[in-house]
Amino acid sequence: MLELQGLTKHFGGVRAVEKVDLSVAQGEILGLIGPNGSGKSTIVNLICGLFPLTDGRVLLHGTDISDLPPHARVTLGIARTFQNIRLFGQLTVWQNLWVAQNSGEQFGQENFLRRWLGGSRRARGEIDRTLEFFDLAHKSDELAANLAFGEQRRLEFARALAAKPSLVLLDEPAAGMNAEEIDQLDRRIRMLRDDGVTILLIEHHVELVMSVADRIAVLNFGQKIAEGAPADVQANPLVREAYLGTATAA
């Protein structure tokens, strides 16, 4: 459904992302891994349209979306979370999802007023169910800034789902989580996949990626160095080299 063709981004002289081709199939979980600074988050930002491409194209269902502004891409079904949590801290948990409900489907595209004034009963019900799914329902009137770290991560994930996306980009969702929370995350990602949501998972936590991803792509210095099933990628010497450094002759 999502296809990156020759995706390139230079920041001044830094080649953050260099000619990356990558495609995500409908309904799969694609893991994207790589050492720090290998360009993973930049790729997410490029898919979301937060900054312009130096070169290449982003296609969604075969249509070029490279020039669309970020909010328009969300309405087309691409939602994301942030590596460093970016919630609306002074809004309540419930409101965080409320403002993110931007797909026409939830309000009826034609109903401008309803969309801005609060939404239909169905839209409200969806928020309650999403919060339920992330075990945040009891916190719905709490300010987002007052949540514990793990809850904030869950809320970010929940907010991304509020827009009813068909593709979710998770940027290091397990960072700073304990083992139990990672287990829950693993379970939720699978449940979403079973619901038909496609997921691009960027993660440092190798165990989680290996367990949950259908396919894995590996980046190093802005280039894709490997792609394939988790076991194959794990065995790939280039990947080992990227993570552990070049073996020097003793």
């Binding site: 937060l50 942030f82 919630l87 969309r115 801005w116």
Partner: peptide, 24 residues
Amino acid sequence: SRAGAVLRAVGEDEVAAQSSGINV
């Protein structure tokens, strides 16, 4: 109303607001 929440969301974090589908 939702409009008020959207205004506040934009005031708090424009990048997050854009990424939540809000036309800033």
